[in-house]
Design a binder for these strands. Structure first.
Lengths: 347, 347
DNA sequence: CGTGAGAATTAGAACGTTCCAATTCGCTGG
DNA sequence: CCAGCGAATTGGAACGTTCTAATTCTCACG
């Protein structure tokens, strides 16, 4: 491979015997150029192995076609689905989104956001790391770069968000358990510094209250939002004096953890303890037992968020309406059959 | 939010009462500047809300600190793990990798690679989409941009790759099944236009041959490398006249599919049919039954690949040694206990 | 054969940074 | 008080593109 210097627009102008302006015009597909000339230019481009320098171009154009996607946990299949939804709409808009992972780390997130800005992104879709404040987005607001939050909103600050109806989802889940005959319920996972946590936990409480579940029969255990956290939550809850017989989990990962921990204790999820998840990731239906979960149409929310940024970019505004996506409960096997109300649960 | 024009280095120079050169120096942390002056500059930067324009800078510097990561299926947790490994090393090198997904689509991959080049990436780690040819990387070779393939290598062409020892892994898996007493074996999933497929299938055949399994007792079924593909493979295989009693699967996703399909037929994975996966994704250990799988230290390979590009970038070369990562079989429950050799399998 | 009116092409000034070379500053020593 | 030196600062060209305004072609028409 010849390590020839990287070709510029002038090189290919010389090669094709035209001016750099002409080449530029061809590059942006202007109809002004005689097809014959355009052909010559395109051939030269191919011959020389020219690669367009978008950085240089943006210097003048001031609008790039890159959109950044900042995600807090690439490892959670849930976020991969979100990404997939977004990509669908960007692809058809001829845009290549750049994804970056923050691993739930605000410091890393700061770096990532900085890097994206420096790169000159036209817009940003962010699923913020735990503990993110509106402050983190001041820079973008200042620079007029559209930001849409996905899946998680901020406590304060006016950053538009696309989120599922967390409260209602949790209400549905809890009501389902109560309808099944459970009277001692738990909510597992999440931390009180996350807005989503409050929304879901509140929805859970709503249902308990509406159905007259006594406060002392409600167990709430905070914990990490992954399998490990779920396992820990269950262990904590079952060692309590008045243990629950069923749980609404912060998300599916936590639910899987809970089921794992149940098995480890020789209890069968669904029969000995009912579990509901949240998010309805693809694995939920394949698990044994299949997980009852609140479905949130992740990919759909991703699409929605993508459309939002696109529109904001076009209308050069930095604000937009929030969007709250519908949720619905997908009943599978992890809550077992209706509980005999005379039976008193398990421990 | 004041939609003030975006500030440049000159604005902050004016603000701080120094020259643009000084600001530039401060920006790159030169020790030449009097600390006092640097302080003034940094304050101005903060006040004005300046964001560095890396595009403009690269115009002169000609080396960026962006590294691209092109992945063929973000949805597969396996690749998310790969990404995580890479990020670990990039993070400590102060580099923010940009990830893009090709969804196993060579056309999309072409777009993505083009976009990354235009963005001026310093190097690329690519897990190529199915059917990718060396041709796809000619551009980068020409431009002297280091490319390292991860997890999949190309049939032809000299693009350095970091891959697991596929052949040996498949051999281990098959040998395990044979040791358990199985005599009619299958290999499920993957397509013959994938190099990995050949490596794994060959390893499988090696073991069969070494242990004297007759050719007519070997079933090979191609299929998609996801759950759906696995289900299809099992269905096909069990409808054959001389059906297998155990299978080595192309990857864990296929293995999960196979187990699903077994259940659907009322067969119990592990007891009625033995299954081995490949990749050992985190879910493998949590599945019921836990999946026996070939572990490949995905994150480790990711790290390795990352180090490779870094080194290539530094030494401005475009070639490097291949790296073949060690594999080992993690035995769990999906192959059941040793098979009674008098028993004749199932169908 | 001259004249316009488009159509097609082009020169040249930006854009925001880096970096070399040149300038100025602050001292020390004579 | 000045020479001289290193430290600190700065001017200006260059990087690869876009875009406006200007120029040159081409050709139909009188």
């Amino acid at each position: 491979m010849p390590v020839r210097e990287k070709a510029t627009i002038l090189d290919i102008a010389r090669e094709a015997g035209v001016s750099k302006s002409t080449v530029s015009l061809v590059l942006q597909g202007s109809g002004l150029i005689r097809p014959e000339t355009a052909g010559k230019v395109r051939k030269a481009i191919e011959d020389v192995g020219y690669v367009y320098n978008r950085g240089a171009a943006n210097l003048r154009k001031s609008h790039s076609n890159v959109i950044g996607m900042v995600i807090n946990d690439l490892t959670n299949p849930f976020f991969a689905e979100l990404a997939v939804g977004m990509e669908r709409v960007f692809q058809s808009a001829g845009i290549v989104p750049f994804i970056a992972n923050t691993a739930e780390n605000p410091v890393r997130q700061e770096e990532v956001l900085k890097s994206m800005m420096e790169q000159g992104v036209a817009g940003l879709i962010v699923s913020p790391a735990r503990g993110t404040t509106a402050e983190a987005f001041r820079r973008m607001q200042q620079a007029g770069i559209p930001v849409v939050l996905a899946m998680r909103r901020l406590r304060e600050g006016r950053v538009p968000a696309v989120v599922p109806d967390n409260r209602r989802g949790a209400t549905l889940a809890a009501a389902h358990l109560i309808r099944k005959g459970h009277r001692r319920l738990a909510f597992f996972g999440g931390f009180s510094d996350m807005v989503v946590y409050h929304e879901r936990a509140d929805g859970f409480r709503d249902a308990c209250e509406a159905h007259g579940i006594a406060t002392q029969d409600i167990t709430i255990v905070e914990g990490e939002t992954n399998r490990k956290g779920g396992m820990a939550c269950l262990d904590t809850a079952l060692s309590l004096p008045n243990p629950p017989t069923a749980a609404v989990c912060f998300n599916d990962a936590v639910a899987f953890g809970v089921m794992l921990a149940l098995r480890k204790r020789g209890l069968e999820p669904g029969r000995d303890f009912a579990v509901v998840g949240f998010d309805d990731v693809v694995e939920a239906q394949h698990y044994v037992p299949a997980l009852t979960s609140v479905s949130v149409d992740t990919a759909g929310l991703g699409e929605r968020a993508a459309h939002s940024v696109l529109k904001m970019i076009q209308s050069r505004t930095t604000r937009a309406e929030d969007h709250v996506g519908a949720v619905n409960l997908v009943v599978r096997e992890s809550c077992g059959p209706d509980l005999d109300t005379s039976r008193d649960g398990v421990a």
